[in-house]
Amino acid sequence: MSAAAPPVIEIRGLAKSFGANKVLDGVDLSVARGESLVVIGGSGSGKSVLLRLVLGLEIPDRGEVVLHGTPADARLRARFMQDFGMLFQSGALFDSLPVWRNVGFRLLREMPAAKARERAIASLSRVGLGPEVADRMPADLSGGMRKRVALARAIATDPAVLFFDEPTAGLDPQRATAISQLIRGIVSQTGATAVTITHDMRSVRTIADRVALLDSGRIRWQGPVQAPAGGLDSDPDPVLRAFVEGRPLDAAP
């Protein structure tokens, strides 16, 4: 990670409202190459909207997203998208395609079907799913399985930049740990950059190099997980403490 390289993602003053609902109100955040950033925040705080804005799926009211040092327009996004992998909170699997065609969606354009299927099955095994699910339809899977299939789709081509929206939601604790470790491993071993959204404090500790807390439309706090002082576990910020310790937010002063 060279100091001169621009951040992979730089978010400047991003604001987004839906009607009267002001969701984001000036978010500034940057993600360095090879870094694993985890965004935490209460539900409905706009975490998913933030990812969708970065990916160009929503248009911001104000502010901009800078990718690799260049303000992102549609053309630039289309180019970088080739090297992005996204796990949607809902999974967003294609109902009309069997599991392996979902996972191999991108691969199918780059290689013969038999090869793509092989790679898709390999990607499924990384998320702990066997080859027997390959020919099932998404509608026939449990919620947790669908989430893992969607994860397998996001990582199938080993993208350089990964976005995970609640990758462990709906999984049992063992499975959640395995998936957190998988994400950690991808970032550590391949040098990929990852932005992960999660509520699950255990997976935050496994996945994150750095944590950002989204609250009231802004990044309220950001910092490393561990630090002598001022890290996730020691910073006195009341909203952060309430979130990390799982106390009700209104208990904060």
């Binding site: 990916l55 799926l57 289309a78 080739q82 992998g85 949607f88 967003a92 109902d95 991108r106 789709r153």
Partner: peptide, 17 residues
């Protein structure tokens, strides 16, 4: 429409389609 509301259309975009 159901592909739209379940984010499948967005997923297509992120898969460069």
């Amino acid at each position: 429409g159901s592909m739209r509301v379940t984010e499948q259309i967005d997923a297509l975009v992120t898969l460069s389609t």
